[in-house]
């Protein structure tokens, strides 16, 4: 199932949170060998995890991490603006309608639908929050996978080569892409809405103003 969790709420999901940071260490440190910092407990976290980001997390059937990504508003401090201006033609991307997406991570052996489900989660965030685009930092070799899932980015720039290649790209939030993501993820419209509302609260009708007792 998809969960949308702010960092300051992760403590309510200790197993999910820990396995996410451990899987990030496996992906970004062990596999991709990015220059990331590991903690003594085998987890990977950076300064942006301390800025109360919003995570989209796929929780597997055992309650562990299946995949995840991390969102921050570009009106605040972001990884792209702090570290990747050389890949955006020097443009500092800031707008209430653009959020940054980083640390797209899959658990080892995660089934293919997990990627699609995460993309769907990103789409739900964008559509529900009136965003026009997301700007992402990602492993350049993922581009083909994103495209195959039916929602490829526009690449702004790429640095490094081989497994070091890191790209910055844009995803446009277009509602007509949502059905394709639902079908690739094997998730129904109703279920996806239900997961979203469970994290952010459903729109409940306002009670009539209570009469004073």
């Amino acid at each position: 199932m998809l969960r949308y969790i702010y960092a300051d709420d992760l403590h309510r999901f200790p197993r999910l949170a820990r396995s996410m940071f451990v899987d990030r260490a496996k992906q970004f440190h062990d596999r991709l060998r990015w220059d990331v910092t590991l903690r003594d407990d085998g987890t990977e976290r950076d300064d942006y995890d301390d800025a109360n980001p919003l995570y989209v997390i796929w929780e597997d059937t055992t309650g562990g991490h299946g995949g995840s990504m991390r969102f921050l508003p570009t009106t605040g401090d972001t990884m792209v603006n702090d570290h990747f201006l050389h890949l955006t033609d020097g443009v500092e991307i800031k707008s209430p309608f653009i959020w940054e997406c980083t640390r797209f991570c899959l658990a080892p052996g995660a089934p293919a639908q997990v990627s699609a489900a995460l993309m769907l989660g990103g789409m739900e965030l964008g559509l529900n929050n009136h965003l026009s685009h997301s700007v992402g930092v990602f492993d350049a070799r993922m581009v083909r996978i994103y495209a195959r899932l039916g929602w490829g980015p526009t690449i702004l720039g790429t640095a490094g080569q081989g497994r070091d290649a890191t790209s910055v790209g844009l995803w446009a939030f277009e509602p007509e892409l949502r059905p394709r993501l639902l079908s690739r993820a094997g998730i129904t419209d109703e279920m996806s809405r239900h997961w979203y509302d469970r994290s952010f609260g459903a729109l409940t009708p306002t009670a009539k103003p209570a009469l004073s007792a």
Binding site: T75, D89, V91, E92, I93, K94, S95, P96, F97, I98, S132, H133, V135, T154, L156, L170, A172
Partner: peptide
């Protein structure tokens, strides 16, 4: 020589500033 999405985001960023 950029895509329309890139252009849109550059304009959006400038508009906000």
């Amino acid at each position: 020589s950029i895509s329309e999405h890139t252009l849109r985001v550059y304009i959006e960023s400038a508009r906000f500033k």
